[in-house]
Nucleic acid binder design. Structure first.
Lengths: 231, 231
DNA sequence: CTGTTTCTGCATCGATCGATACATAAATCG
DNA sequence: CGATTTATGTATCGATCGATGCAGAAACAG
């Protein structure tokens, strides 16, 4: 129902002859600014006037290029994923063991969530902290919820593989462990937004991993001989 | 700058003769409805029209009784604390050991955050999930941040006492452990808002406590003989 | 050049935002 | 009773909300 940014054909935009007056601003840079603003203030508290000021364009240009506030937010979510997802998930995916994957996820999160990667990015994770689903925007809400569900699925899948590999006991609560890991990561986002430092969050990660190690070995002990908690 | 609800003198409101036309609505019930709405939708996404409809009053009555949207939100935070804080912190405070206190905190949170106490309350913690500080309302932001900081201080204080009692090793990272426990609780709020069940969150709590037990004993082991992780 | 297409800046749309003015109603005081 | 005080209901305030109309500018095709 809304004209897209440059028609979809030809698929290679570089070959499009670009009819009409060319755009006077960098669409990518403007989207980056919009993303940072939504990230920092949330959807409802960010006005079109805020956006046009941060993006350095007029409102007709914004609507011509991005359609509406809702579709701009959706594009901002996509851009955020493309730009930041690898910071937290690349080492997770490359790790040889579930233990190392979780360690990478939490330690990399401690850095990314406190702005230790990008220069002056907002604190915490835009997707984790987004409350757009509670603000009456069902479509955007589904989007962020499914992103968060995907993260849970990734960890569950990795832990399931660890069970298949024998790294984790077959009796391990894969779903509970996955929810636990993402609960810690989500809590790190909340604390980052309140000003926790990278070192603060790394301490959280260390405690988590110590518990992970001990629980896994305790689980094996329990599996072999102990019916109750060790201490 | 704003007339309070009934003058502060005499201090006992029941003895006040109540001059003028009496209020036609239950202030407490109206505040409860306002709290639920702010809790569910957040500050920015909740309009005065939403509030007056939910509270069943006209806007002049709202302003006469509560001052402004900001002061109403502040009162809602107070009311939320009075009404729900004990659900999560009473058993924590009464527990004989730090281990039992943390267990109580997380298990009671699993119930409260999923609406297993009140009938149809919103999901997750209003204070934990409040983003009002990022939405450009500094005063309210300080309020929720200090509430969250108080929770951290409570856990730190309890863990510090556990170290003094000998329950935890003197080498235990009290700050990191406290941040860890609250990160898990915060993550539980996020997952509750996404629809996680009480059983889901209790699984998270169990994993956390297993790790706690194992880490504490591992810490003691390390303190006594082992320089590295057990497994 | 003319015609077509697309983007930009100015002005502004109707709707809704948070917040009130005002007249009236309902209570107490004297 | 009238005088005073406070709350309510209607109607509305100026400001801002998200979103556009429109004329001119800047590129293309012919």
């Amino acid at each position: 129902m809304q004209k897209q940014d440059r028609p979809p054909f030809p698929p290679n935009a570089a070959l499009a002859p670009a009819r009409g007056r060319p755009r006077a601003f960098d669409r990518e840079a403007a989207l980056a600014q919009a993303t940072r603003l939504f990230w920092r203030k949330g959807y409802a508290a960010t006005s079109i006037a805020d956006l046009t000021e941060a993006m350095g364009i007029g409102s007709p240009s914004l609507y011509a290029a991005f359609g509406s506030k809702e579709t701009l937010y959706a594009e901002a979510l996509d851009w955020y994923g493309r730009r930041y997802e690898a910071l937290v998930w690349a080492n997770f995916a490359a790790a040889g063991t579930a233990r190392e994957a979780v360690e990478a996820l939490l330690m990399d999160s401690a850095a990314a969530l406190t702005g230790s990667c990008g220069a002056d990015d907002p604190l915490g994770c835009m997707v984790t902290l987004s409350a757009v689903g509670s603000e009456g925007h069902a479509e955007l809400g589904d989007r962020v919820r499914s992103s968060r569900a995907l993260a849970l699925k990734r960890v569950e899948e990795r832990l399931g593989r660890a069970v298949a590999d024998g790294e984790l006991a077959a009796s391990a609560d894969v779903h509970g462990l996955a929810r636990f890991v993402l609960a810690v990561q989500g809590g790190m986002s909340l604390q980052a937004r309140d000003g926790a430092s990278r070192a603060d969050l790394e301490a959280v990660a260390r405690v988590t991993l110590s518990g992970w190690d001990a629980q896994v070995s305790a689980g094996r002990h329990r599996e072999q001989r102990l019916p109750d908690k060790p201490a």
